[in-house]
Design a protein around this nucleic acid. Structure first.
Lengths: 345, 345
DNA sequence: TGTTAGCACTCGACTGGCCTGAGTGCTAAC
DNA sequence: GTTAGCACTCAGGCCAGTCGAGTGCTAACA
């Protein structure tokens, strides 16, 4: 069965009405709206068809209709018209992101804050993956008691640090310098992924057994680069979600807060989106976790001009003002890319 | 009017009963409990006195009594017996904190997690204040387009980084080296507070006008050290709070989540506790913010052996299992101090 | 054949009354 | 000073009744 023009406009009216009011939409409301000159009874017939096709449901007999995930999906894919940001909005975003002298981490947090403020939902930002960043600089600082502080800087200026516990004696100062120079020189410009590979290969080679400095260098750097690093995720504006009527009962609030506290799931979710380009929209629990039932996710990646660094987005109820949020996510991702793009060749 | 022994035990019974059950406690319950051989009527008389003195209230006519903030305060100050941690509990905490190779930041997050897990409430950890850390090492890395990445390491191994935007040309490589050496040499071992002072004094002196290197050094370092740095706060286990019956209605949930999202207030609150020693208990909104009405805060500072670095604690409902939580906060603070104490002389 | 009016029906939300049980305060007696 | 007894209060659960929004179906209309 095909959707003709009339059913399309009725579906659209239902979805937009529901997005605006949060209430189920009845046939009367649509008929009175007057755009299409139809009686409530006719609208009812069409609604009945739409329900059969799975685009809408009625929560109970005497309520109006509400879009299903399938309905939203359809709406987003074929009827959604995103608006542009006003210049004031752009400016607001710019000034809030561009405060100079920010740590990268702070910058990402700000971006999350912006997303949440502009959308009135929850903003999330996934920090650049450690393994996909590019090597730029490494430095060792001895602490006491056989502990060594390692500072690692990626090409894009992201700083990571780690304390490693040394068994036995700390390397001498000049030895450390040698190692530092060696690593800085030989890994320069490689991705961490590649660095890992190289470390592992070299460790297997004979040379490493005899060259004491090389052995040291490999031992130290493997501590830093091999092994997992937790990804960092910033969540801002969780409280916004709790103001949404769909989460106003205490059980769903609890569920939602718990879901956001389980950052691991969210990270996985955002991670999956990294391969795609442009703004992505995930609706309902379609491809997501149970915990985020009733929620939709709008994401985009940010890059350094060449490769994807991380992703960011907005989580809101499925009944989200998609047309408002999409441009915000898009613009913020572009802005972040622009800021992080100013980097060393 | 004085509290005699009998009223004391009744007050104690009310408070401990209420902590255990969450319900208002009636005269009957206490009489039946049998510890003090009294009839409900007698207990009622005493309760009436206690209410008059402000230690307890009844939420409505036909409910039992509930402790007031004053009641809790009294209980905590003069009757509380904290238990010791079992060796399993200690061990659990140790293993969860001691995973080596953690960034300091991660360590603090873990501590927060531990606090929340052990207490079943919400754990908070305030990161070391930037201004009270001790200078150890600074390093400049040029990025593109007049931007400079500054990495700063404190004595205790905390790494901060900042990108500064240079007006005009970037310093030459050898110049940057000179500056780095100068700063590392002359600020070594000073607190950031002191460094700030020195920078400001030196900038006023004539010498700075003529020595180009010095001028450069001061300009750069002032960008880093002068001006505010946001303190970092980790909140873990927010969802635990929402499982408490006192916050089970959606309004107080919302209020609470919002309160926790306003990190600034929390930071101020924890900041105030920094001057005190040992475990501190703040009850109700006594000295706190409206938003945390009905909550209590148990905190302790962590140190590097010489000076306070930051503080941590647990926020729970006023009806908190104080005797269980106090030792957890205490032990975690000590553990953190011990870990961070392993530092360079 | 598509559209509409009419009507009976369903169901959630709200209201008010009723009952119960827990707990209190007061008084009088021990 | 302690206790028993009694009248009183009040939240919470339960039930019946009402209201209004919205539906599905059928029959009539263009």
């Amino acid at each position: 069965m095909e959707l003709n023009e009339r059913s399309l406009s009725i579906l659209e009216a239902i979805i937009e009405g529901h997005i605006a009011s949060g209430e189920p939409i009845g046939s009367r409301t649509i008929a009175k709206q007057g755009k299409l000159k139809l009686s409530p009874a006719t609208v009812r017939n069409v609604m009945s068809d739409l329900e059969e096709m799975g685009y809408i449901v009625s929560p109970h007999t005497s309520a109006g209709r509400v879009p299903t995930d399938k309905g939203y999906r359809f709406y987003v894919d074929s009827m959604l018209q995103v608006r542009d940001l006003s210049s004031e909005e752009r400016q607001w975003i710019d000034t809030h992101c561009n405060a100079t002298g920010l740590q990268t981490e702070q910058l990402l947090k700000r971006a999350g804050h912006i997303l949440s403020r502009m959308s009135r939902y929850t903003g999330i930002v996934l920090a650049p993956r450690f393994s996909s960043t590019t090597f730029r600089h490494i430095e060792f600082l001895p602490l006491s008691q056989g502990r060594l502080l390692v500072i690692f800087v990626s090409q894009s200026g992201v700083v990571q640090n780690k304390i490693i516990e040394m068994e036995g004696d700390l390397p001498e100062r000049h030895e450390l310098e040698q190692v530092t120079n060696y690593l800085n020189h030989s890994f320069s410009g490689m991705t961490i992924e590649a660095v890992r590979g190289q470390i592992l290969t070299q460790m297997r080679e004979e040379k490493a057994l005899y060259d004491k400095m090389l052995a040291r260098a490999l031992a130290l750097s493997s501590e830093v680069f091999v092994g997992e690093v937790e990804d960092d995720l910033f969540v801002e504006g969780l409280a916004n979600m709790l103001d949404q009527p769909e989460f106003s009962d205490s059980n769903s609030m609890r569920r939602l807060v718990k879901a956001f506290e389980q950052k691991r799931n969210l990270i996985q979710l955002l991670d999956k989106t990294q391969s795609a380009q442009g703004v992505q929209i995930y609706i309902g629990s379609q491809s997501q976790y149970q915990d985020f039932e009733g929620c939709s996710l709008i994401t985009a990646n940010y890059t350094n001009g060449k490769q994807t660094l991380g992703s960011l987005g907005v989580i809101g109820p499925s009944r989200m003002a998609y047309s408002q949020v999409v441009p915000v996510v898009d613009y913020t991702a572009r802005l972040l890319s622009r800021i992080l793009h100013k980097e060393l060749e």
